[in-house]
């Protein structure tokens, strides 16, 4: 009984490690076959429309609400210390450094990541990828790489839009509704947010998240068993795995980026 359980555990671990190995090789293959995605940039733009533009609404609306909540909660806390003018800093910092990249990435994973997995999985199940190979066109170069780069490019743009909407939401609640001084709100924000420390690091984060999410989504689709259950299982795994990856990577990146700050 115990022996069986251990054997089972070992087996699962080996399978998991094996899959990670395949995923890494897949990632390298995408990078090596990226020529087409840049030479015929129209292909990548088209995918940016599908994954990026279609995630836009959910990103903008969520950003607005998250910013509004930040405005309310931040004001509550800052008020007790009599420093409600710092609301602008709080809202902007939280969004640009953390919430923008992370929440936008989580939304992107569930909106665009799952769609990518389902699409690639179905293309495989209906032999479209085989057909492409038989036509001497490499599916990695023609189908996978453009989607990869589209995701990597879209992600920081979406995160930036999320943060911008969030700051606007914080402004609406803090300044327009509660009545924090408008001049203080903006000027404190402007002087406190550092380009390199905050904005650039936020962009780096979202590029890394974009790479992680699209690689996972594409790999799950490409690796999915060619059946209905196979594809639906892969879609779920994409959302779970890439969300976890985003949160874990966020911790690691934050630890490196803001270690030196007081």
């Amino acid at each position: 009984m115990l022996k069986q359980a251990i054997a089972h555990l070992g087996n699962r671990t080996l399978q998991g490690v094996g899959r990670i190995g395949f995923a890494v090789r897949f990632f390298v293959a995408i990078l090596l076959h990226s020529g087409t995605a840049f030479r015929r940039f129209g292909l990548t733009i088209r995918e940016m429309y599908f994954s990026g533009v279609q995630s836009l609404i959910i990103i903008l609306v969520s950003g607005l609400f998250v910013g509004m909540v930040l405005g309310l909660q931040g004001y509550e806390t800052l008020q007790t210390y009599g420093s409600e003018e710092a609301l602008g800093i709080l809202v902007a910092m939280s969004l640009v450094r953390e919430l923008g990249p992370v929440v936008a990435a989580l939304l992107f994973a569930s909106r665009a990541g799952s769609a990518i997995t389902a699409e690639i999985g179905l293309m495989k199940a209906t032999e479209q990828l085989s057909a492409m190979e038989m036509m001497a066109v490499d599916p990695i170069a023609r189908v996978v790489a453009p989607r990869f780069w589209a995701g990597v490019i879209s992600m920081p743009l979406l995160a930036a839009l999320f943060s911008a909407m969030g700051i606007f939401g914080g402004y609406l609640v803090g300044v327009q509704l509660i009545g924090v001084d408008e001049g203080a709100f903006w000027s404190q924000m402007q002087s406190a947010v550092d380009f390199e420390q905050d904005i650039l690091n936020g962009v780096i984060k979202s590029v890394v998240f974009g790479i992680a999410i699209t690689t996972i989504a594409l790999f799950e689709g490409y690796d999915a068993p060619p059946t209905a259950e196979g594809v639906s299982g892969a879609t779920t795994r994409t959302v779970v795995t890439s969300s976890l990856a985003v949160l874990a990577l966020d911790f690691v990146l934050t630890a490196f980026m803001f270690r030196g700050l007081s």
């Binding site: 699409e119 209906t126 085989s130 038989m134 066109v137």
Partner: peptide, 29 residues
């Protein structure tokens, strides 16, 4: 394979392209 053509058992048309684009695919590639 550029010298081969294959009709798949279940068609395997590219579902995100029109009939025209499906047939034009190899010519464009």
């Amino acid at each position: 394979r550029r010298k081969m053509g294959m009709l798949f058992q279940f068609g395997a048309l590219f579902t995100d392209m029109s009939v025209f684009d499906n047939v034009a695919f190899q010519l464009r590639e």
